[in-house]
């Protein structure tokens, strides 16, 4: 408490990041709106410029923070601020997924059974007579508008393998963390690299699964509510695994450069928290999207 709290000098990164974010949003909006017309507009370039700018800023901003940290500017109190920051960020991510899980539960518990005529919600049943409620929903109320999937993905093939991969990766990451705390850097490098490998293999299987869904099962975004919930949940999870893998790679590179020691390694811990969070989300997905 006696050391002064570090207040950084004025910085170019936030305003540049705001511009980058704005260009990305503007570009994505223009691009997506163009999809419904001829499909060619300048949105793509805005989006790419924004994304490139963002990538540079993220790199520069984090490099800035890493250098400040290694220059010894951060006190134990500063460290706690980062810990609170990361914890609450992960909580916000939990709530982001909660929205999609909530949607899935509402659809399965209320919306689809009501469409099937359950309870006194008979009015919606009038629209599509003969519709039977089932889950997974293979026959949508309006099969011409939303042709349903021919089958769904069995949980005991690729999804089970992926579950084992991710659960193992949490263990390997913990071993790496233990290695860092005991000062055994060879352990850190080996097990961290293994974690990254598991993440990449997971993503490969996920991609394979999507290809099968689209080409063989007719399970697409357009195949009604089953496809919609399936892809939004697994898709956002996959994006988070991708981001987590990138973050782990950065951490591995930092370890190789000799960063982190047994006491000070919040960057490592933050990424490992994130990885465990992504892992837990997958367990929820495996349970509620694939098995049940």
């Amino acid at each position: 408490m006696t050391t002064q709290y570090y207040v950084p000098e004025r910085s170019y990164w936030p305003i540049l990041a705001s511009i980058g974010l704005f260009l990305m949003a503007l570009g994505a909006g223009t691009l997506i709106n163009g999809l419904q017309q001829d499909g060619s507009n300048h949105g793509k370039w805005l989006l790419l410029t924004g994304a490139a700018l963002m990538a540079c800023i993220v790199f520069a901003w984090f490099r800035n923070v890493v250098r400040e940290s290694r220059a010894g500017l951060y006190s134990a109190q500063m460290d706690r601020s980062f810990r609170w920051g990361m914890s609450w960020f992960i909580f916000s991510e939990v709530m982001f997924f909660a929205a999609f899980f909530g949607a899935l539960f509402y659809i399965r518990v209320f919306a689809v059974p009501w469409l099937g005529g359950e309870g006194d919600r008979g009015s919606s049943n009038l629209l599509w007579q003969g519709f039977t409620a089932e889950w997974p929903l293979l026959q949508n109320p309006d099969s011409e508008l939303f042709p349903g999937p021919s089958a769904v993905i069995s949980p005991w093939g690729v999804p089970l393998i992926n579950t084992l991969l991710l659960l193992t990766s949490s263990v390997t990451l913990t071993i790496a963390h233990k290695g860092l705390k005991t000062g055994s850097r060879a352990t850190v490098k080996l097990w961290l690299a293994l974690t990254i490998l598991l993440g990449i293999v997971f993503l490969g299987f996920q991609a394979e699964e999507y290809i099968v869904a689209y080409t063989e099962l007719d399970l697409t975004l357009k195949s009604g509510i089953y496809g919609a919930t399936f892809f939004i949940l697994t898709g956002f999870h996959g994006l988070h695994v991708t981001l987590g893998t990138v973050m782990l790679i950065v951490i591995l590179l930092r370890v190789l450069k000799g960063h982190f020691d047994a006491e000070q390694h919040f960057g490592f811990e933050a990424v490992s928290w994130y990885w465990h969070f992504v892992d837990v989300v997958w367990v929820g997905l495996f349970l509620f999207v694939y098995i049940l």
Binding site: L115, F146, A228
Partner: peptide
Amino acid sequence: PVLAGVVTMMLMDIHFGTSFFNAAGG
């Protein structure tokens, strides 16, 4: 984040053919 989730579902419904808020697709 829940607001972000719901507008994302809107975006998907409008542009990518999902049916979160469309009873015709369940």
